Simulated assay, not measured.
Amino acid sequence: MQILRNTYLSLGSNQGNKLDTLQKAINLIAEKIGNIVKISAIYKTASWGFKSDDFFNCCIQVTTGLNPENLLYKLQQIELLLGRNRTSKNGYQARTIDIDILLFENEIIFSKNLMVPHKEMLNRNFVM
Rank of each mutant, 00 (worst) to 15 (best):
T96F: 13
Q76I: 02
R95I: 09
L102F: 01
G83R: 13
Q76P: 02
K89E: 15
A94D: 13
E107L: 15
A94I: 02
G83E: 07
N85E: 08
F104H: 03
G91E: 09
N90Q: 11
I97C: 02
K89P: 00
Y73W: 13
L102G: 07
Q76F: 12
I109P: 02
R86Y: 06
R86G: 02
R95E: 04
R95H: 01
F104K: 09
Q76H: 15
I108P: 00
I108V: 15
L82G: 06
K89G: 00
F110T: 10
Q93I: 08
Y92G: 04
N90F: 15
Q76W: 08
G83N: 11
L80I: 04
I109D: 01
G91C: 03
L102N: 09
N106E: 15
L82V: 01
L102R: 06
A94V: 05
F104Y: 15
I97R: 00
R84L: 09
L75C: 07
L81H: 14
I99K: 08
R84K: 07
I99G: 13
N90L: 11
L82A: 07
G83F: 05
L103I: 05
I108D: 03
I78C: 10
F104Q: 01
L75S: 03
Y92D: 01
T96G: 09
I109M: 10
L81R: 14
T87R: 01
Q76D: 08
T96E: 06
Q77T: 04
I108G: 01
Q77M: 12
N106C: 10
A94H: 00
I101M: 08
L80G: 01
I78K: 08
E107Y: 02
L82C: 06
Q93C: 05
S88T: 13
Q76E: 13
R86D: 10
N85C: 07
N85S: 09
Q77A: 13
F104A: 04
E79Q: 14
R95Q: 03
R84W: 12
R86P: 15
F110N: 15
I97Y: 13
R84Q: 07
R84F: 12
Q93D: 11
D100E: 00
I97A: 04
Q77P: 00
E105Q: 08
L82F: 14
L75P: 11
S88F: 10
E79L: 09
G83D: 08
R84P: 15
N85G: 02
Y92F: 13
L82Y: 12
Y92W: 04
I108Q: 12
K74T: 03
L75H: 07
F104V: 02
Y92K: 08
L81S: 15
D98M: 05
Q77C: 08
F104W: 05
N85M: 10
L80C: 04
S88P: 00
E105P: 07
E79S: 10
Y73Q: 11
F104I: 05
I97N: 03
D100G: 11
R95A: 11
K74S: 03
E79N: 10
A94F: 04
L81V: 07
E105R: 01
K89N: 10
G91K: 01
